[in-house]
Computed example of a mutant assay.
Amino acid sequence: MNRKVILTCAVTGAGDTTGKSEHVPVSPEEIANDAIAAARAGASVVHIHVRDLETKQGSREVSYYREVVRRIRASDVDPVINLTAGMGGDLVIDPQDPLTTMPGTDLINALDRLPHVEELLPEICTIDCGSLNFGEGSNLYVSTPDMLREGSKRIQTLGVRPEMEIFDTGNLWFANVLVEEGLIDAPPLYQLCMGIPYGAPADPGLLAAMVNMLPKGAQFTSFAIGANQLPWVAHSVLAGGHARVGLEDNLYMSKGVKATNADLTARAVEIITSLGSSVATPDEAREILDLRVQTPTITGGDL
Results as ranks from 00 to 15, higher is better:
H49R: 10
I48E: 04
R40A: 01
R40E: 08
S44G: 09
K56G: 06
V68L: 08
R40I: 04
R60N: 07
H49M: 11
R70L: 01
E61S: 14
S63Y: 05
I48R: 03
R60E: 04
I48L: 14
R60D: 06
R40L: 05
T55V: 07
S44Y: 07
G42L: 02
A43V: 08
Y64G: 09
S44A: 13
H49I: 11
A41L: 02
H47M: 11
A39R: 05
S59E: 11
Y64W: 15
E61K: 15
S59Y: 13
S59G: 14
I72V: 04
H47R: 11
R66V: 09
D76V: 01
A39T: 07
Y65P: 01
D52N: 15
E54P: 09
Y64K: 13
Y65I: 03
G58L: 00
V69D: 00
Y65F: 15
T55W: 04
G58C: 02
R73D: 07
V62Y: 00
Q57K: 15
R70Y: 05
Y65G: 01
V46R: 01
R66Y: 09
R70S: 07
D52R: 13
V50K: 07
I48F: 08
Y64D: 10
G42I: 03
V62E: 02
A39Q: 05
V68S: 04
V50C: 14
E67M: 15
V68A: 07
A43R: 03
R70D: 05
Y65H: 06
R70E: 05
V68D: 03
V62K: 00
E67C: 14
I72T: 00
S63A: 12
E61V: 15
A43M: 10
V62H: 00
Y65R: 04
R66S: 09
G42R: 01
T55N: 07
K56E: 14
R60A: 08
Y65E: 04
S59Q: 12
I72H: 03
E67R: 14
R71S: 09
S63I: 11
L53A: 14
R70M: 01
R70F: 04
